[in-house]
Simulated assay, not measured.
Amino acid sequence: MSKLAKFSLAAAGFVMAASVYAAPFNGIGRAATPDEIKAWDIDVRPDFKGLPAGSGSVAKGQDVWEAKCASCHGVFGESTEVFTPIAGGTTAADIKSGKVANLARLDFPQRTTLMKVATVSTLWDYINRAMPWTNPKTLTTEEVYSVVAYILNLGEIVPADFVLSDKNIAEVQKRMPNRNGMQTNHGLWDLKGKPDVKNVACMKDCKKEVSITSFLPGSAVDSHGNLVEQNRPIGPARGLDTTKIKK
């Protein structure tokens, strides 16, 4: 065999190997289209990368809130018995310092959303992708901006006549009550951080089977209505049909 023929065979083998390596599932499925990727690539980061252009007012947000949010979260963010309050527990001093003093109080009854969240981008991102609870991803860009503006107004972070937009949201971030309260020295943020659990692996005389169970106490049955009717119709989790439980 000539050197040219050997070279040609070697080159063909290299191309074939490269093709197999690049497409290990050749013949199964297809590459996602740019539009399909764009539909899922909707995250908004703390530096506001991914935030779409747009704006929304507090007044518009109140209208959207009362129509699509208040049934779970209350007209003023106080929420129902099932959900944690959205607003409350923050002060003007917190807005100035960037740390919520009530988080250090063991006697404070609740940890509201505005007490805990460090970045306004988190509010925008979560509302955009997950709300309303029964119909996620249906809010328009203007509605998301407006709802976030309304929540911020409930916490007295912005005034009642404020219009939140992609142009001024970075300035609003400087007024978030817990903006300096986020910790990053843990394993969920950095692999070099400390883990959030301290379990020790069992190496001798270990249990062969572990059974993890939960139950709904009789006193709680139907206290908030039938749970199965309150869950989303998608996903693996299903609420328990509390009408069939004997008290």
Rank of each mutant, 00 (worst) to 15 (best):
K207H: 13
K167V: 09
Q110F: 11
K68H: 00
Q173P: 00
E142Q: 09
S121Q: 06
A201V: 15
G89W: 12
I37L: 14
A39I: 12
W189K: 14
P85S: 12
W65R: 14
A130I: 05
P52A: 09
Q62Y: 14
L123Y: 06
M203T: 15
T134E: 14
V210W: 13
H186K: 00
E81H: 02
A92N: 14
E229K: 12
I95C: 09
N226V: 13
S165Y: 04
L4C: 03
D94I: 15
T242D: 07
I28E: 13
K49N: 12
Q110P: 05
I95E: 14
P132T: 02
L139K: 00
D190M: 10
T138Y: 13
G29M: 08
L103S: 12
T113I: 04
P24G: 04
K167P: 04
C72H: 00
G181D: 08
N178K: 03
N185R: 07
V221W: 07
I234P: 05
F25P: 02
N128I: 06
L191H: 01
K6P: 05
G89P: 13
E229Q: 07
M1S: 05
V75M: 08
N168G: 00
A59G: 06
H73L: 00
A23V: 05
P236G: 04
D94T: 15
L51K: 09
V44M: 06
K68V: 01
C69L: 02
K247V: 10
N178F: 04
V163P: 07
S214K: 01
R30P: 01
G98H: 10
D43K: 15
R129Q: 14
K247W: 07
G56H: 12
L227N: 08
G155P: 08
A92K: 15
V15I: 15
N178H: 04
L191A: 05
I37Y: 06
Q230G: 04
F215E: 00
G74H: 05
E36F: 09
I212M: 10
L227H: 08
A18D: 10
R129H: 08
V58T: 10
T90W: 11
F83K: 04
D107C: 02
A18F: 12
T113V: 07
L152S: 10
K60A: 14
F14P: 02
L114N: 02
K174N: 04
T84Q: 08
A201W: 11
D205H: 07
W40H: 11
G155F: 09
I28S: 12
L164S: 02
L216P: 01
G13I: 10
D161Q: 04
A104L: 13
K99S: 15
M176A: 03
K3W: 12
E81V: 04
G50A: 09
G27T: 03
L9Q: 07
L123E: 05
T113H: 04
M176G: 01
N199M: 08
I37H: 03
G181L: 10
I28F: 15
F76S: 08
L164V: 02
A130S: 13
Y21E: 08
Q183S: 05
I234H: 09
G193F: 00
R30N: 06
N180A: 01
K204G: 06
K192Y: 03
N180D: 02
A160L: 06
F215Y: 03
D107Y: 01
I95K: 15
F7V: 07
